[in-house]
Computed example of a mutant assay.
Amino acid sequence: MKLICLNAWGGKLADALLDYVKAEAPDVLCLQEITHTPASDKDRLTYRDGPHSLPQSANVFRDLCHALPDHAAFFHPAAQGELWDHTAAVPSQFGLATFVHRSLPVLGQVHGFVHKCYSADGYGDHPRPRNAHGVRVRDDVTGRSIGITHMHGLRDPKGKMDTPERTAQARRLLRLSDKLARPGDLRIICGDFNVEPDSETLQILADGGFRELVTTGGFAGTRSSHYQKPGRFADYMLVDQPELITDFRVIYDPEISDHCPLLLRT
């Protein structure tokens, strides 16, 4: 089974992103920062946050569904806010997407909020609502069931330091993984956690029986050249049975986001 996990950056590099996922065709694709704007069929609208105005890929989820027609697609919004078509406001949802190839039976799912709750009346103040989604699939090649849970960790404008909110978030994420998996399953937790490698978040998951593969694999970071701020780590991949992993990589080329894809094979 091939798994790819990525913060898609709201589809800012949508063409490169779509080409990459079509070429890789992973069995399971876990994506954070996905837009879904069912009220508009436009490819791009404008995101406004105070004085900031940015072009925004409006329908990344739709475009990914077209790019991966042989995958079951799941979208879980964390919030609904507004994008703009010139002077017209368009309701748009922002959250997680998970794609599972139809050859893999989906045996179970979990979804829950790890910080705050769904915001229906705007994206909200930072730190904004965050959710997590998990799928339990059967890999008939290995004869094994695999529980995969991913999240987009809260963003704090003050930085990536440990906070009580991040501690609570990590414990909620671990509980969701516990709820999804069955004894003997390979368990995987991944996503853009928005924390440093020495964070309490990763320690909580380690205490829960998980090994983190980015830092233990000696990778230099998970950010592409599009990310200009200090700090090169944000994304992590953890497993509870590392001996079952046949390959793990941080993909630095091609660049399809300001984050790097994490690719794992079992």
Rank of each mutant, 00 (worst) to 15 (best):
residue 162 D to R: 07
residue 99 F to K: 03
residue 165 E to C: 03
residue 45 L to R: 10
residue 94 F to Y: 15
residue 143 G to C: 06
residue 247 D to F: 03
residue 205 L to R: 07
residue 93 Q to G: 00
residue 103 S to V: 02
residue 13 L to S: 03
residue 80 Q to G: 00
residue 6 L to S: 03
residue 219 F to G: 11
residue 140 D to I: 00
residue 119 S to P: 03
residue 57 S to Y: 10
residue 235 D to F: 00
residue 221 G to Q: 09
residue 228 Q to R: 15
residue 35 T to V: 07
residue 24 E to A: 15
residue 210 F to C: 06
residue 185 D to A: 06
residue 78 A to D: 08
residue 244 L to W: 15
residue 121 D to Y: 06
residue 248 F to I: 01
residue 171 R to Y: 11
residue 229 K to R: 14
residue 62 R to I: 12
residue 114 V to M: 04
residue 226 H to A: 10
residue 180 L to E: 09
residue 260 C to A: 13
residue 215 T to L: 12
residue 143 G to P: 01
residue 86 H to A: 11
residue 151 M to R: 06
residue 30 C to F: 07
residue 204 I to N: 08
residue 227 Y to W: 15
residue 82 E to G: 01
residue 35 T to C: 10
residue 129 P to E: 07
residue 101 H to W: 03
residue 95 G to T: 11
residue 191 G to E: 05
residue 19 D to N: 12
residue 244 L to P: 00
residue 131 N to I: 04
residue 204 I to K: 07
residue 84 W to N: 05
residue 186 L to T: 07
residue 60 V to M: 14
residue 46 T to W: 13
residue 216 T to I: 03
residue 198 D to I: 00
residue 33 E to K: 10
residue 196 E to T: 13
residue 159 G to E: 05
residue 157 P to F: 02
residue 237 M to S: 04
residue 95 G to M: 12
residue 60 V to G: 01
residue 26 P to W: 05
residue 236 Y to V: 02
residue 201 T to S: 14
residue 258 D to Q: 07
residue 225 S to M: 05
residue 208 G to V: 13
residue 220 A to S: 15
residue 199 S to L: 06
residue 152 H to I: 01
residue 204 I to C: 11
residue 147 G to N: 09
residue 25 A to M: 11
residue 170 A to L: 08
residue 155 R to D: 02
residue 6 L to R: 05
residue 192 D to E: 06
residue 117 C to T: 09
residue 201 T to R: 08
residue 209 G to M: 11
residue 171 R to I: 12
residue 137 V to Q: 10
residue 124 G to D: 08
residue 64 L to K: 05
residue 58 A to E: 04
residue 201 T to E: 13
residue 84 W to K: 08
residue 164 P to Y: 12
residue 33 E to A: 06
residue 201 T to C: 14
residue 109 Q to G: 00
residue 205 L to P: 03
residue 43 D to N: 12
residue 136 R to F: 10
residue 162 D to I: 04
residue 1 M to N: 05
residue 251 I to A: 05
residue 202 L to W: 14
residue 265 R to H: 12
residue 66 H to T: 14
residue 264 L to P: 01
residue 207 D to G: 06
residue 236 Y to I: 06
residue 25 A to S: 15
residue 248 F to M: 01
residue 20 Y to D: 03
residue 84 W to D: 03
residue 3 L to Q: 05
residue 13 L to R: 14
residue 150 H to E: 02
residue 256 I to T: 13
residue 211 R to F: 05
residue 146 I to M: 07
residue 141 V to E: 15
residue 2 K to M: 08
residue 73 A to V: 07
residue 171 R to F: 10
residue 70 D to N: 14
residue 239 V to F: 11
residue 175 R to K: 13
residue 53 S to R: 04
residue 200 E to F: 01
residue 232 R to E: 08
residue 21 V to H: 11
residue 207 D to S: 11
residue 251 I to L: 12
residue 99 F to V: 02
residue 198 D to C: 05
residue 119 S to I: 02
residue 127 P to F: 11
residue 192 D to Q: 07
residue 177 S to Q: 15
residue 117 C to F: 02
residue 51 P to V: 06
residue 190 C to I: 02
residue 13 L to F: 13
residue 203 Q to P: 00
residue 19 D to A: 14
residue 156 D to Y: 01
residue 70 D to G: 14
residue 86 H to P: 00
residue 63 D to T: 04
residue 21 V to E: 08
residue 217 G to D: 09
residue 105 P to T: 09
